[in-house]
Design a protein around this nucleic acid. Structure first.
Length: 375
DNA sequence: GCATATGATTTGAT
DNA sequence: ATCAAATCATATGC
């Protein structure tokens, strides 16, 4: 009863000194309570608060001490690893081994595209812009270069934004990762968190951030595409080749009519002569071949023109040949036209020009350019 | 304004 | 990779 009394005293904050236990049990008349001094009660509350504070401090210290003791316990590492293992197993059995890497291919595609467009990869925008400006200054393509530099400038802009954003993301990712890692490492002193789990969590963070990066890449790609279609779609801004370039190309075409497939070297030379690209030469020959084949009649006049042209240049050689007593019998410019995997012979009926048809449909197989003849 | 010419691109085959 | 063929989109000439 004595013990109980003290305990109750401590808990209720009412001094029971001089009163019987019955009093604390509510057997005392109530008016006695009212008579207790208010100051005295305040003092009691203060002392209890103090006690509580002290207790809290003590228990914190105690807990800290206990924790430290546990941490230093020789069995702690073993216990920790066992707990980690158990946790690992539970985690695996719940979530299973779900590996999801479907976005990888798309990410690669985006990366490749950005690299191809010059948005990612080594810095070259400035140099290219300078080169373009220089080309413009030299001359040649005056109206084209302005748009091209404009395009370059916009591309550089996109590139800059892309890189700043990417850097920001990377920085945020590293920051967040280190923060989480520190947190987990700190917690691993009191919770079973294995390094493996930390690694996994870090991976999750990286995945999240890389998905954000992918969004950035995606929108950058879109921007570049729009820019391209606005500025670089050659079909929209097509310019005919110069008369001189067409001349050179036609000369080659009609003088190689039996095999109008310039080699890589020939293409390069033609490109240089015409100040166009090799692929433009390829395009031109591709178009020419198909269009010539489709309607040889339409091209008769042109063929004659260039045949005559080359004939003139060949005159000297012919003269020499005649002088040497060689055969100079006429050949036909278009009779031997040959497409790949196909022998294409001119049908006389196709031609609208009967004179030229009779002139050039002689059944000779020797292309005119290979003979030393003049018409 | 329209028909044709022409350079570029796409597609599918080899 | 290169080509033929079809197609697109602009240029040009009338």
């Amino acid at each position: 009863m004595e013990d109980q009394g003290r305990l109750l005293q401590a808990l209720s904050g009412v001094t029971l000194t001089g009163h019987s236990v019955q009093g604390t049990l509510g057997l005392e008349p109530p008016h006695i309570h009212d008579s207790i001094d208010r100051d005295e009660r305040k003092q009691d509350i203060g002392s209890i608060l103090h006690q509580i504070m002290t207790i809290t401090d003590q228990s914190l210290d105690e807990a800290q001490a206990k924790k430290h003791g546990l941490n230093c316990h020789r069995m702690k590492p073993a216990l920790f690893s066992v707990l980690c293992e158990i946790k690992e197993r539970i985690g695996l059995s719940i979530s299973g081994a779900q590996e999801e890497e479907p976005a990888d291919a798309q990410l690669m595609r985006l990366d490749n595209m950005l690299l191809a467009e010059g948005v990612a990869g080594p810095e070259k925008g400035g140099a290219a812009a300078v080169a373009a400006a220089a080309a413009a200054a030299v001359g040649g393509m005056t109206d084209n270069s302005i748009e091209h530099t404009d395009y370059r400038a916009k591309l550089t802009q996109i590139r800059q934004i892309y890189h700043t954003e990417l850097e920001k993301y990377e920085q945020a990712c590293t920051e967040f990762t280190t923060h989480v890692m520190n947190l987990l490492r700190e917690q691993s002193r009191t919770r079973p968190i294995s390094p493996k789990e930390i690694e996994r969590k870090v991976n999750i963070i990286h995945r999240k951030f890389s998905s954000i990066q992918m969004q950035l890449k995606q929108s950058t790609c879109e921007a570049v595409m729009i820019l391209r279609s606005r500025f670089l779609d050659a079909r929209r801004k097509r310019r005919n080749f110069s008369k001189q370039a067409t001349e050179v190309l036609n000369e080659y075409f009609y003088s190689h009519l039996s095999n109008p497939y310039p080699s890589e070297e020939a293409k390069e030379e033609l490109a240089k002569k015409c100040s166009i690209t090799v692929s433009q030469v390829s395009n031109w020959f591709g178009n020419k071949r198909i269009r010539y084949k489709k309607n040889i009649g339409k091209f008769q006049e042109e063929a004659n023109l260039y045949a005559a042209k080359t004939a003139v240049t060949a005159t000297q050689a012919v003269a020499a040949a005649v002088h040497n007593g060689q055969d100079t019998s006429p050949a036909t410019p278009n009779s031997g036209f040959q497409m790949k995997d196909e022998d294409f012979q001119l049908d006389a009926g196709d031609s609208k020009n009967s004179l030229l048809t009779t002139m050039f449909t002689g059944g000779y197989h020797t292309p005119y350019y290979e003979s030393d003849s003049i018409q």
